[in-house]
C-alpha cells in the first residue's frame, strides 16, 4: 500500500498575525504544521501498520523551515519525506496543490491524504484540488479509513455525530478530519535522531495554477460587538463571573 500524505506549513494562529500590504506579513510569523495534517499522518501510519506499505510525507517548503515537520513525520512512522522547494510564503492553496499533484504523479500512490482544511485555505483546501489535478475521486471529513484489497471503507463525518460509510476503489484522495486514534506522540530524541540521519528529497516546483483571487485587503475582523471584559486577577475574574451568574439565576 503506497500512501502519500500532503501536508501544509501555515502561519501559526496562536500568535499575533501582523499584516503587510494586503496579506499576512509572512516575515513576522512562525510557520507550523497544519493541525489536521497530524491526523492525516496518523491515519496513514495506522493503515501501514494494519496492511503494510509505505508512507511518504510531502509538503511545499515555503520558507525553508519544513524539515522539522518532516522529521516529526518520520519519527511518527513515515518512511520517506520530500519537500517542494518553493521559497514563496504567499503561495496559495491552488498553487501548492498543483505543485503537490505534479510531484505525487510519479509516486504511484494508492491513496493521497491531506488535512481536511487549514486556517489559511482562503481559496479552498489542497486535498480537494490535488484530487482534481490527479483526476482521482475526493472525499473529505474522514474519521476512519480501512483498506482491504483494492478498495477502502471510508467513514465520513456529518454534523451531530452522524457518519456515512463509503466503499472507494483505489486510488483516491481523502481530506482527513481525524484519525481513528489521537495522533501519536513522538519523543524529542527520536525526532532529533531523524534530523541527523534522514534524507529529505528535494523536488523543484512544476506546474502552474492560481486561486484566481486578487487580495484587496487583510485586516482583523470589524467587530460588530465586543465582550465586556472582566478585569483583575484570576481570582477576581472568577468572583465576578460567579457574581454575574448568581445575578442571572444561573448559579
Amino acid at each position: 500500500m503506497n500512501i502519500v500524505v500532503a501536508i501544509k506549513h501555515i502561519p501559526s494562529i496562536a500568535d499575533d498575525l501582523p499584516v503587510k500590504g494586503n496579506n499576512v506579513d509572512f516575515d513576522s510569523v512562525d510557520f507550523v504544521l497544519n493541525e489536521w495534517d497530524e491526523h492525516s499522518i496518523e491515519q496513514a501510519v495506522l493503515i501501514k501498520e494494519a496492511v503494510g506499505g509505505t508512507v511518504t510525507v510531502i509538503g511545499v517548503d515555503l520558507i525553508g523551515e519544513l524539515d522539522n515537520a518532516l522529521h516529526l513525520a518520520l519519527a511518527k512512522g513515515a518512511d520517506k519525506v520530500a519537500k517542494i522547494t518553493a521559497d514563496d510564503p504567499a503561495a496559495d492553496s491552488h498553487t501548492q496543490a498543483k505543485w503537490l499533484a505534479e510531484a505525487v504523479k510519479g509516486m504511484g500512490a494508492d491513496m493521497v491524504f491531506a488535512g481536511v482544511q487549514a486556517s489559511n485555505d482562503i481559496d479552498g483546501q489542497i486535498g480537494a484540488m490535488i484530487a482534481a489535478y490527479l483526476d482521482m475521486p475526493y472525499i473529505g471529513g474522514t474519521s476512519a479509513i480501512e483498506v482491504s484489497g483494492s478498495a477502502a471503507t471510508v467513514s465520513k463525518e456529518f454534523p451531530g455525530g452522524v457518519g456515512m460509510k463509503y466503499s472507494i476503489t483505489l486510488p483516491f484522495v481523502a481530506g482527513v478530519q481525524s484519525a481513528p486514534k489521537p495522533p501519536r506522540y513522538a519523543p524529542v530524541s527520536k525526532v532529533r535522531q531523524m534530523a541527523q540521519t534522514a534524507t529529505v528529497e528535494k523536488i523543484a516546483p512544476t506546474g502552474e495554477a492560481s486561486s484566481g483571487l486578487a487580495f484587496k485587503k487583510m485586516a482583523p475582523p470589524v467587530a460588530t460587538g465586543h465582550a465586556e471584559m472582566i478585569e483583575g486577577s484570576s481570582k477576581e475574574v472568577a468572583a465576578k463571573i460567579v457574581e454575574l451568574l448568581k445575578s442571572k439565576g444561573l448559579a
Binding site: 479552498g124 475526493y138 465520513k156 484566481g212 483571487l213
Partner: peptide, 22 residues
C-alpha cells in the same frame, strides 16, 4: 460545510475558476 467542502475547491480546480472559502 462537510458536503460543500467536498465540492467547492474540487470544482474550482476542475474548471480552472476562482474560488473563495470561509
Amino acid at each position: 460545510t462537510v458536503t460543500g467542502m467536498d465540492m467547492a475547491a474540487w470544482l474550482s480546480a476542475r474548471l480552472g475558476v476562482a474560488c473563495a472559502a470561509y
